[in-house]
């Protein structure tokens, strides 16, 4: 682990690769603490007056009708499924990027032809799926 990481870490002056993630973790905890503290403070300081009418959900001033946990349009499901396909595809592209245009490793630079070809094939396959989904009317909202 030290062999690969050392040259870059020396530039940053960190003693361990994990220090970056500890920093980001501290920042995340600070954000979380900000949220929790605000919720608690306003819970303590704010007034609280309850009542039957007040506790019902807001539906433009009339009594709530029916239930909220009901069936909804199937198109949202289709969008979620197609999104998964594209999101995973994008995740594949991220490691590809860091190896495609990498001048530090000569063996990666030598392989840039096959690497380029692979992403072209990858995109074409994705495009076929995209055109199929379009033809099936997945993207049709009216």
């Amino acid at each position: 682990m030290t062999t690969l990481a050392t040259p870059q870490l020396a530039v940053q002056g960190f003693s361990s690769l994990y220090e970056i993630w500890i920093l980001l973790g501290i920042l995340f905890l600070a954000g979380l603490g900000f949220g929790v503290a605000n919720v608690i403070i306003s819970h303590i300081l704010g007034p609280s007056r309850k009542g039957n009418v007040k506790d019902s959900v807001y539906e433009s001033g009339v009594n709530p009708v029916g239930t909220t946990r009901d069936r909804f349009n199937v198109r949202f499901y289709l969008v979620a499924m197609i999104f998964l396909v594209f999101d995973v595809e994008v995740l594949f592209l991220i490691p590809w990027i860091s190896s495609f245009n990498d001048s530090r490793h000569p063996w990666l630079h030598a392989a840039h032809g096959p690497l380029f070809l692979s992403v072209v094939i990858f995109t074409v396959i994705l495009l076929v799926a995209y055109i199929y989904a379009w033809g099936k009317g997945v993207f049709k909202w009216d």
Binding site: N38, V39, I41, S42, H43, L45, G46, P47, S48, R49, K54, D55, S56, V57, Y58, T68
Partner: peptide, 18 residues
Amino acid sequence: FILKEEFMPIHADKILFI
């Protein structure tokens, strides 16, 4: 904002709501 009343509907999922 801090001094205003908190409100939670009676049918809300309490944990997720907070």
